[in-house]
């Protein structure tokens, strides 16, 4: 029997910054959670009409199709350079990039570091799932030691393939960034913390304070070959040991 919604109160709905289309993320993937948090943040700050998103190459390559704000798509790794160009010629825009670990911390290392070092007044959302998702599970710069991937079939060996790259820590060494943090979304408490962090990162941009990086540890059930529950447990128990959570830099509080 159909349930009448007549006397119900809507307590949860799709953010206004998203359109009706479906995300293309896999079931159980955290991308959807973070993408939604970004949309919610845009709603709360009432900046949809001046936001431009820069989609990367990766699982969120067509992100601009889901948002009700202006958007573009950057070549692999160059999102921070594209964001720089947009923001410099129109400082009134709110510009953010949303990039995976391959895009931001492998092919785009130079652009990502230098945008941070110039203190570009942009927001960088960095999805660290320790693997190349869209291309089918190859090793990422953030892949844990010993972790299996399709291009390190015996597990990542540090002496051959290097070590998990701690990008937030690298950026935290620079003078310009106002906010650098690493968060995760493997449980409700962490989702709330990530929501606060993303809000702060965008708010600092709105206030003209400068560059903010929110690194979010996420899962990839498809390419980790795990169920979502097991993948979440792996994040909480193992991945955080290599990538500790918390704020690394917050220079935005005063002034």
């Amino acid at each position: 029997m159909p349930v009448s919604t007549e006397n119900m109160v809507k307590v949860f709905e799709r953010p206004n910054s998203l359109n009706e289309s479906q995300f293309s993320y896999c079931p159980g993937c955290h991308h959807g959670v973070v993408t939604r948090i970004v949309a919610q943040t845009i709603d709360e700050l009432e900046i949809r009409e001046r936001t431009v998103l820069v989609a990367p190459v990766g699982c969120s390559v067509s992100m601009y199709q889901w948002f009700r704000c202006d958007g573009t798509q950057a070549s692999h790794g160059r999102a921070c350079a594209v964001a720089t160009g947009l923001k410099r010629v129109n400082p009134n825009l709110i510009v953010f990039t949303y990039q995976g670990d391959g895009d931001l911390a492998a092919i785009g290392t130079a652009e990502s570091i230098h945008a941070a070092n110039r203190g570009e007044n942009i927001t960088v959302i960095f999805i660290n799932n320790q693997i190349y998702g869209m291309t089918g599970g190859q090793m990422a710069p953030t892949t844990l030691l010993g972790q299996w991937a399709t291009s390190c079939p015996d597990g990542r060996e540090g002496s051959l393939a290097g070590y998990p790259l701690r990008f937030a820590e690298m950026v935290a060494q620079l003078e310009a960034p106002v906010y650098v943090t690493r968060q995760s979304v493997y449980d409700q408490k962490r989702i709330m913390a990530t929501t606060r962090a993303i809000m702060k990162a965008f708010r600092y941009q709105v206030e003209g304070k400068g560059y903010a990086l929110v690194e979010v540890l996420t899962n990839c059930p498809t390419n980790w070959k795990m169920g979502p529950v097991e993948a979440n447990r792996r994040l909480a128990d193992e991945v955080v040991k290599t990538f500790p959570l918390g704020d690394l830099v917050d220079r935005g509080q005063s002034g």
């Binding site: 950057a74 160059r78 350079a81 160009g85 947009l86 010629v89």
Partner: peptide, 27 residues
Amino acid sequence: GGAFIQAESEIAAINMCYGASAAGVRT
């Protein structure tokens, strides 16, 4: 009154052009 950046590479420079041009400015 325009934007000038000495970029970290020619790759970054052309992608900054992509962004600035997308914003509608002669680049």
